[in-house]
Design a protein around this nucleic acid. Structure first.
Lengths: 204, 204
DNA sequence: TCCAACTTACTTACCGGTCGGTAAGTATTC
DNA sequence: GAATACTTACCGACCGGTAAGTAAGTTGGA
């Protein structure tokens, strides 16, 4: 019973996960609307109908992909290091996010997909994931300013919002123009431009 | 012949321009792939085939729309005022761009559309329009820093790139989350965050 | 051990609808 | 009659999704 169970679960995960992997890549590259179920199935060498054994609809695949994307992103950004200076933490997070965004565009793409009014669940998911993202960066930003003891009234949330917006915009540019972007260099530039770097670069 | 010519040109412009207006709105709202020729024609109360009298293809409509968008944007941003202080000029341009972006998303959307390798013309158009946009903001940014006589080596182009990226990111958020954004307030926040405002807000 | 029944993971063939686009036809104007 | 601005009817291809069928594996009872 044990061996059987393993085999079944293993096989199921194998194809199902492969579907998600391929869909994740294609949705990122060509957007949700630009990818058909046939595209996904062909890439896997299975039939379109086989996708429906594992998922109830194209939307089901999409929502599962987005779930996965968010889990991965959170995992990548939440690795707190207790002895890490605030500026370094922020810089690392920015770098991690840029690396992530340069590998795939599903989170940015999700903002572009026009949903029908009835699709409140997916909309709420995107809204929530966005909020979570901003909330990940906000304390890091506020940590930087706490160290500075300047501008205690700085709006960490506003800065986080703008930081995320900037990164998304840069991710968009990168993916379209195929610009070579070094995540390490660009993350330094980003925090510098926002005045969030370790060595202040602007004497106002 | 004169009256005929006027009537003909007038009628042609009327329907043709209406097609562009509707397409522009729908492409902005639902993206290129999310809009069908039937959507456009229905909205106008004409048949789909009538669209092909005026335009050779869906792509033709799209390219013409993007042309129009860029012309409008340039017109809106290029109104130089000779007695305008540099900071004010930049702030105004940011505000104008945010207002523009909040009304329509076609320029950002264009970055999301996956083009086939053969579509070099459209790709080049988007690349060029992006460059033009950044070049519009760069001198304004550099004007601000020239006044400050500080950091003469500041990379105006980098700042312009990041500024545009941030604005696009914010436009994306706004359109998805239906956040109420006051262009005047948010433009002030943007230039402030980037250290480009008239009253330095950070003493480093 | 064998086998029928069941389960799993697909495939084949099909569905209704939509997509961009086309050719012939039509009504109006000059 | 010619030109313009459409409409009607159609095309092949594609879309997401479904029902029936198939092959392989598993299991429990004889």
């Amino acid at each position: 019973m044990e061996a059987t169970s393993d085999r079944q679960i293993g096989a199921l995960r194998d194809t199902r996960q492969q579907i998600l992997d391929v869909a994740r890549y294609l949705f990122s590259d060509c957007s949700y609307l630009g990818v058909s179920m046939k595209d996904i199935s062909q890439r896997l060498g299975i039939t379109k109908a086989a996708l429906y054994y594992h998922f109830s609809s194209k939307r089901d695949i999409y929502v599962t992909v987005l779930d996965e994307v968010l889990v991965d992103l959170r995992a990548g950004l939440c690795t707190e290091r207790l002895d890490e200076p605030a500026e370094e933490q922020l810089r690392r997070m920015v770098k991690d996010y840029m690396e992530f965004g340069m590998r795939e565009r599903n989170l940015v793409n999700a903002l572009m997909l026009k949903l029908s009014p009835a699709e409140t669940e997916l909309r709420q998911f995107v809204v929530s994931s966005r909020e979570q993202l901003i909330e990940l960066f906000r304390p890091a930003i506020e940590g930087v300013f706490a160290l500075r003891r300047s501008r205690p009234g700085v709006d960490g949330r506003l800065l986080a919002t703008m930081l995320v917006a900037m990164m998304d915009g840069l991710v968009l540019e990168h993916s379209y123009f195929k610009k070579a972007l070094d995540p390490d260099a660009v993350s330094g530039q980003i925090v510098s431009v926002l005045g969030l770097d370790a060595a202040p670069s602007v004497s106002a």
